[in-house]
Every structure is written in structure tokens, then in C-alpha cells.
């Protein structure tokens, strides 16, 4: 009994730095932002209580709809593409044999690129008139679109850019693939299963827990996407807003409201609305996972 109490105390001690950090740097600011969302506050004058006005405005603000649409569009395109590409790369890496370590490093290197540098580089690569990507498409007889200036192509261009960081997900999949029991493949081969059937019936269920994790994490990250789009299209105040609303993601709009229009109350309401949206989407994914995800430890 005494030993158990000692263990509990030790656990709390080890947890306490995290708990303190969470309370001070996450929970505290969250509660404060919930309070701010009920006020009008421009950082220069004291906050005035406005009740649910900010939330009412949020419902009627057309820019919120645009920003939400852009963000969901990006997420719906980015997450599946990222997962498929990462899985394909991880599968190829599995077959790389001794060179696997080298390719793993090469694949992961782009993840190290600072987002702002990445944005600057892709602005040049994606330029519709002089960029290397359209130049490449031209070699195959395709006329590339204006990725960075045509409203219809700005978001696909950003999705293309976002795949630059596929390496981190691919490395996770590589680890998951190595944990799928080899005897299952041997048994399937003896039964005459094709490569595709092996992939569908063994590999996918075997790594479904990992896929589920990356879907959740990347969906949340996509719904909060900010840095690259901001650096490409909003970072320089001289050219900000020069491409219309096509790249106006939700968090960029939130940032504009907070730090350009100085509407901290409204920005806080936007933040809480996003929190709810993410929570709902995550809840749906968790529910769906009960049918789609297989954990080795649980009976099927």
C-alpha cells in the first residue's frame, strides 16, 4: 500500500512539469481567450463585455465562410494525397534493401526546410509564367496553370507544396510496415494471394492504427494551416491581399483580425469556433475508426 502511494507520488512528480506547463501555457491562455471572445478588445483600451456578439457576427461574416471553405478544401485534398504518397514511398523504401537508410534520410531531409524558405522557393517554382514546374510540364506537352495567381489553382498549388513534407509521414509508415508479421505474407503467398491482395488484406489492416493516427494528426494540422500560405501570400504587407481570398485560410483570417484589425475578441471567438470544428471532425474520425481500424491486441 505504502509502495503504491510512493509510486503515485513519483508519477505526479514526473508529470508535474508538464501539468504546470499545460496550465500556464495552454489551459490558462485558452480560458483567457474564451473570456476575450465575449468582449471587444483592441489591446490598447480595456476590454468591454459584449456577450455573444462576436459569435453572432461570426455566423454572418462572409469571410468566415470563405476561409472555412478554403481550409476544408485544402484539408480534403492534402490529407488523402499525403497518406497515399507517404504509404507508396514507405512501401518502396521497404524494398530498397541496404540503401534504405540512405533513401530514408533523403526522404526526410525536406522536412527540415524552414517553412518560410519553403514558401519563397515554391513561389518561384510554381510561377505560372517562369516557374520550373510549368517548364517541366511543358516538356511533356502540358500547359501548366498559373499556380500562384489564378484563384482556381492557388489551393491546388499549396497542396502540391505541402507534399514536400511527406517524408515525416513516410518514415512513420516505414516503421509500421516493419511491424506487420512476415508469416502472414508467407501464408498468403502459399495460398496464391496476389501482391495487391496481400497489401489490401494484410498490410493495410496491419498498419491501420498508424494510418488512423496520421489521418487525425494531419487533419488537425491542415485545419490549422498557416505558415506557408501566409509567407507566400500575406507575409509582405506591401503585397498582402494581392491574390484575393483564394489563399485566405481560417487561421490567416483569424490572425488578420487579431493583429491587423486589432479585434482580439472576435479573433478569440474565431479560435473557439475552429476548436469546435476540429473537435467535431476528430470525433467523427474516432467513431469511424471503430469500424476501420484494427488493433492487434483486440479481438476482431
Amino acid at each position: 500500500m505504502a509502495r503504491q502511494r510512493g509510486d503515485t507520488r513519483a508519477a505526479w512528480m514526473f508529470l508535474s512539469p508538464w501539468i504546470a506547463g499545460f496550465l500556464v501555457f495552454t489551459a490558462g491562455p485558452m480560458i483567457f481567450s474564451l473570456f476575450l471572445s465575449l468582449t471587444r478588445y483592441d489591446m490598447l483600451k480595456p476590454a468591454t463585455f459584449v456577450g455573444l456578439d462576436n459569435y453572432q457576427e461570426l455566423v454572418t461574416d462572409p469571410k468566415v465562410g470563405i476561409a472555412l471553405y478554403n481550409t476544408l478544401f485544402f484539408t480534403v485534398l492534402h490529407v488523402p494525397l499525403l497518406i497515399v504518397l507517404a504509404l507508396a514511398l514507405a512501401s518502396l523504401l521497404r524494398r530498397a534493401g541496404r540503401a534504405s537508410g540512405f533513401f530514408r534520410t533523403v526522404l526526410y531531409l525536406p522536412v527540415m526546410t524552414p517553412p518560410v524558405a519553403l514558401a519563397a522557393m515554391f513561389l518561384l517554382l510554381l510561377n505560372g509564367q517562369t516557374g520550373a514546374i510549368n517548364e517541366l510540364l511543358g516538356w511533356f506537352g502540358f500547359t501548366g496553370p498559373n499556380w500562384t495567381t489564378d484563384p482556381a489553382w492557388i489551393k491546388p498549388g499549396l497542396v502540391l507544396m505541402s507534399l514536400w513534407g511527406v517524408g515525416s509521414t513516410a518514415v512513420i509508415y516505414l516503421a509500421a510496415l516493419s511491424r506487420v508479421p512476415q508469416e502472414l505474407y508467407e501464408a498468403a503467398r502459399l495460398d496464391g494471394a496476389s501482391s495487391w491482395k496481400q497489401f489490401w488484406h494484410i498490410t493495410l489492416p496491419g498498419i491501420s492504427g498508424t494510418i488512423y493516427f496520421t489521418v487525425i494528426v494531419n487533419t488537425i494540422a491542415s485545419l490549422q494551416t498557416f505558415t506557408e500560405a501566409y509567407a507566400m501570400f500575406f507575409g509582405n504587407s506591401e503585397v498582402a491581399d494581392n491574390q484575393g481570398d483564394s489563399a485566405l485560410f481560417y487561421v490567416i483570417y483569424l490572425f488578420q483580425q487579431a493583429f491587423s484589425s486589432l479585434r482580439m475578441g472576435y479573433a478569440s471567438a474565431l479560435a473557439w469556433a475552429l476548436f469546435v470544428v476540429i473537435a467535431v471532425i476528430t470525433a467523427v474520425q474516432v467513431r469511424a475508426s471503430r469500424r476501420l481500424v484494427y488493433y492487434e491486441s483486440e479481438p476482431r
Binding site: 513561389l123 517562369t130 500562384t148 495567381t149 484563384p151
Partner: peptide, 11 residues
């Protein structure tokens, strides 16, 4: 078209 005009300028 604006998209081409701006892309050309951006270069």
C-alpha cells in the same frame, strides 16, 4: 488575364 499578368510580374 490577371493571373498571367501577375505571374509574369512575379517573375
Amino acid at each position: 488575364p490577371w493571373a498571367s499578368f501577375k505571374a509574369f510580374k512575379d517573375g
